[in-house]
Amino acid sequence: MDIKEIIKEENIVYKKTSVLTDKVMHYCPGCTHGVVHKLVAEVIEEMGLQEKTIGVSPVGCSVFLYDYIDIDWQEAAHGRAPALATGIKRLMPDKVVFTYQGDGDLAAIGTAETIHACNRDENIVVIFINNGIYGMTGGQMAPTTLPGMKASTCPFGREPGQDGHPLKITEIVAQLPGTTFVTRQACHTPAAVRKTKKVLKKAFENQINKRGTSFVEVVATCNSGWKMSPVKANEWMEENMFPFYPLGDIKDI
């Protein structure tokens, strides 16, 4: 069949959701943020939630997330997104509220806000992007940086005795009675992306059904920070990140 015959409106099987804005994202080529942003937007569109969803963006690379998903947004101070989300959801329980946070934001400076929001049964969705490095500030060590992994503030590799151990915060929040669904996914292959979308949908459905906190970690690449090509970064993530941060549902009540 001729290509011109195929490229027709009625043959579209995949296109940008209208909930994503047309703004070109500021991320580096191959950044996982773009994929997860898109999935969140697709879930919001498919569930018809655009008019009632309020997002809370973090400090970190995704600080400008509000430029990309066409919903109402609040931009939080570093680590405080779960506290903002608590205020929003408690005062507007009929709205759908989610936070989107990186590892430094959620698992270092915002550890208390994360744990206590999850432990209070806050009926919100927490999306956690874990790429093991501080991307925005230029590749410093994160709470989730692997032992031996190099970063600009551990240039010879993270040494736990000196730099502390990587924090598996997702396993910690899974133990809290306030969480209903805790999962760890990735976006390195088409199948993984489709799976991540499925769990995001489930997380938003949990909120609509008033089931407490749903926590979705996405193990992600930061190819600039890791100093690799995007494709190589995906391979490195599979070989090194997944053994320490294994994928799958950790808790599903």
Binding site: I54, V56, Q74, A76, A77, R80, A83, L84, A85, T86, G87, I88, R90, L91, M92, A112, E113, H116
Partner: peptide, 16 residues
């Protein structure tokens, strides 16, 4: 859980 959290809950509510 802290004054840091309370003022940020205030931020969230005030933003609404």
């Amino acid at each position: 859980e802290s004054e840091i959290a309370s003022i940020n809950m205030v931020y969230g509510g005030a933003g609404c």
